[in-house]
Design a binder for these strands. Structure first.
Lengths: 231, 231
DNA sequence: TAAAAAACCGACCATTGGGTCTTTTAAGGA
DNA sequence: TCCTTAAAAGACCCAATGGTCGGTTTTTTA
């Protein structure tokens, strides 16, 4: 939370081309402004995720925060603009910290990915109200309906894909993964499997499905390991 | 088309507890009634799939058919009822004929599934306007928003799962699949992968992704085959 | 062929939702 | 203290939507 604000402030001061550091009160003002926007975005993301974008009205968000239309349209141009900012400010980071950053290490790649999926799915299992993989939910909702938003969502997908591919290539380089393995193919397969299982898990017995899924994933990973295993 | 009508007639005559065969005109009546309902449902499914349920109004469906509100609410109780009938009459059959029936044979199970996925994905690739796996789209849209509809959708999922499991067990029995393989696990993994790749394919380069996915699927399947392969 | 039933029409209603606009409040700065 | 301006309030607008209802047309039945 604090991290977000600091980060955003930095961005803003850059775009305004003068540093607020010189003006003591400007900081407070920006902080207040950003805090309000942040609150709206956090609530917005939560509601959009749980009820869907088209099924959530701006008033729904406002009601939750006891704010008015005026406040909303003072800070955001439109509902669409609001959502795009949510994507850029919150969704990107969420996906990054959950699925990308954890596999950036230099240890055994397949173990990293396994651990990453394990954690991500465990979070979903324990989340009382789980509505599936947030990114794929939105992709489903906007596909063919809003080109602009789809672009933003696909950017996230691409970043994920690129990182998976390079992680796998790293594994091949390190000798943990068989050098004949098609990194792009594995990445697509992994993304598919993850997105799919998250949808499957929204239903009953998510933890059983998680267990079965993970065990098959490990099985699949074994078949990707370098044959001449040392260590 | 004809198949649907005949089938529906059978169901109706059962529920009304008297056979229309004795009353020559009753058949025509039911046929007309059912034909109209069928037209509405087919159009409805198409629109709901492409624009989403909540984002498609009843009027949208009616406009397409030049029918009126009166006609609609004469045949269906509500929009929700309409959709449930669409699920039961069209969606169930669609999933069945695409994903279940093709793997019911007695040949090499993994080949059957491979071919089935291959065909299903190929259809998606060639479909100019593809919006993803229809079943998982609806699951995403209704999850946490409409318990009643979710039940119907999950029924379909379950049928799919059961059939996959028994197909795999058949494969184990026939000696094509390693007897240590966890059939339930494989089923969950396959369903996940399929649902996920369909979402991934809604974006650019669906055919490349299909190719990569299928090749990894084959790779995975190889690791499930019985070690003592004869033939 | 006339009555009855089925199928359908379309005006109407209440509510909602995105967005606008004018007005009020509150917090610096001089 | 006065003035400016950011922030927020909330009444209002208008199109869309699910659903109702009284009436009209078409088909079936007797």
């Amino acid at each position: 939370m604090v991290g977000f604000l600091i980060n955003s402030c930095t961005l803003l001061s850059k775009s305004k081309k003068r540093s607020w550091v010189q003006y003591p009160n400007l900081m407070d003002k920006n902080l207040k402004r950003l805090a309000t926007m942040q609150r709206m975005q956090v609530t917005g993301l939560h509601l959009f995720y749980s009820k869907g974008y088209y099924n959530t009205s701006v008033d729904d968000v406002l009601k939750e925060l006891s704010l008015s239309k005026g406040a909303f349209y003072y800070h955001f141009e439109s509902k669409e603009d609001f959502f795009i900012q949510i994507i850029e400010n919150l969704l990107v980071r969420k996906v990054y910290s959950m699925l990308i950053e954890p596999i950036e290490g230099h240890e055994h790649t397949l173990d990293l990915i396994t651990g990453c999926f394990e954690d991500a799915l465990e979070t979903a299992v324990h989340n009382e109200l789980d509505y599936g993989f947030i990114l794929s939910n939105f992709i489903n909702e906007f596909n063919g309906r809003n080109e602009k938003i789809m672009k933003h969502l696909n950017n996230i997908l691409q970043v994920w894909e690129v990182n998976l591919v390079s992680a796998i290539q790293r594994g091949k380089f390190n000798g943990h993964i068989d050098r004949h393995v098609d990194a792009e193919g594995v990445a697509v397969f992994l993304m598919s499997a993850y997105m799919g299982v998250r949808t499957l898990m929204v239903e009953m017995t998510p933890s059983a499905r998680k267990y079965r899924f993970m065990s098959q994933l490990r099985h699949y990973f074994k078949s990707l390991e370098a044959k001449t295993t040392m260590v």
